Simulated assay, not measured.
Amino acid sequence: MSLYDDAVSVLTAHDGGGPQQEGLRRDYLEHLAAHRDGMWKACGAGHLTASALVIDPERGRVLLTLHRKLRMWLQMGGHCEPGDTTLAAAALREATEESGIAGLALLPGGPVRLDRHPIPAPCHRHLDVQYAATATAGAVEQISEESLDLRWFPYDEVAGVADASVVRLLESTRVRLALGA
């Protein structure tokens, strides 16, 4: 199965809850149907990206990166690459590369949320498929070239440093954790 096929399968099965998430799910599927290259950065109409919010549920905290280009505190994530076989693998690769933490594990149940956001040229629009990953006890982060800083934030401090999309991702992640899924 190709990454494109995996994305269609994941999005077809995704139930993010609520009309806004359902609308995004349909938009993503329509985008892929119209753009066979819709997985890749080269697609001028926008493209899917994969991200993962790195969390430490035992300590009630989340690891955010101060993105070098955007100068915003964000979850780890980015563009799919030719070696990625699934969206989940792309999200986990990005989270591992950008956090420097080995042994991250995605929460079961597929993507936590979908989020569409504009990005400065040349990318223009990201259709982000958002996962969450747990860090192992004692995990030590290491700043990558894509980041100005990495920092653990208690859950209740995220709204003060990050934008609304990260806050929504954290809220949805905490719901998934509470449900044990």
Score class of each variant (00 low, 15 high):
2 S>R: 14
3 L>S: 06
5 D>M: 12
7 A>N: 07
8 V>T: 08
8 V>H: 01
9 S>E: 15
10 V>Y: 11
12 T>W: 13
13 A>T: 11
13 A>K: 14
14 H>M: 14
14 H>L: 15
15 D>V: 02
15 D>A: 05
18 G>Q: 02
18 G>F: 04
19 P>S: 15
19 P>I: 11
23 G>K: 14
25 R>D: 02
26 R>E: 13
26 R>Q: 13
27 D>N: 12
29 L>A: 02
30 E>M: 13
31 H>A: 05
31 H>C: 03
32 L>D: 00
35 H>F: 04
36 R>V: 11
36 R>Y: 06
36 R>C: 00
40 W>L: 11
42 A>H: 10
42 A>M: 06
43 C>I: 09
43 C>V: 09
44 G>K: 12
44 G>H: 03
47 H>C: 01
47 H>K: 09
48 L>G: 03
49 T>F: 01
50 A>H: 06
51 S>G: 15
52 A>W: 02
53 L>E: 01
54 V>C: 03
54 V>L: 00
55 I>C: 14
55 I>H: 04
56 D>K: 07
56 D>Y: 06
57 P>C: 12
59 R>N: 07
59 R>C: 02
59 R>E: 12
60 G>I: 11
62 V>T: 09
66 L>Q: 07
66 L>F: 03
69 K>A: 14
69 K>C: 10
71 R>N: 15
71 R>D: 15
72 M>H: 14
73 W>L: 01
73 W>Q: 07
73 W>T: 05
77 G>V: 07
78 G>L: 06
79 H>P: 03
80 C>P: 03
81 E>K: 08
81 E>D: 08
84 D>V: 01
84 D>G: 08
86 T>C: 03
90 A>F: 00
90 A>H: 01
91 A>N: 08
91 A>C: 12
98 E>N: 05
100 G>D: 06
101 I>L: 09
104 L>G: 08
106 L>M: 10
109 G>R: 09
111 P>W: 14
111 P>T: 12
113 R>M: 12
114 L>I: 01
117 H>T: 06
118 P>W: 00
119 I>A: 12
120 P>E: 14
121 A>D: 15
121 A>E: 14
122 P>M: 13
122 P>K: 10
126 H>C: 11
130 Q>Y: 06
130 Q>S: 12
133 A>Y: 08
134 T>D: 09
135 A>T: 10
135 A>C: 06
136 T>M: 12
138 G>E: 10
139 A>V: 09
139 A>N: 11
141 E>D: 11
145 E>T: 14
148 L>H: 05
148 L>W: 01
149 D>H: 02
151 R>Y: 07
154 P>I: 01
155 Y>E: 06
156 D>F: 13
159 A>E: 08
161 V>I: 10
162 A>N: 01
163 D>R: 08
166 V>P: 05
166 V>A: 05
168 R>A: 13
172 S>G: 15
175 V>D: 11
179 L>N: 07
181 A>Y: 08
181 A>P: 05
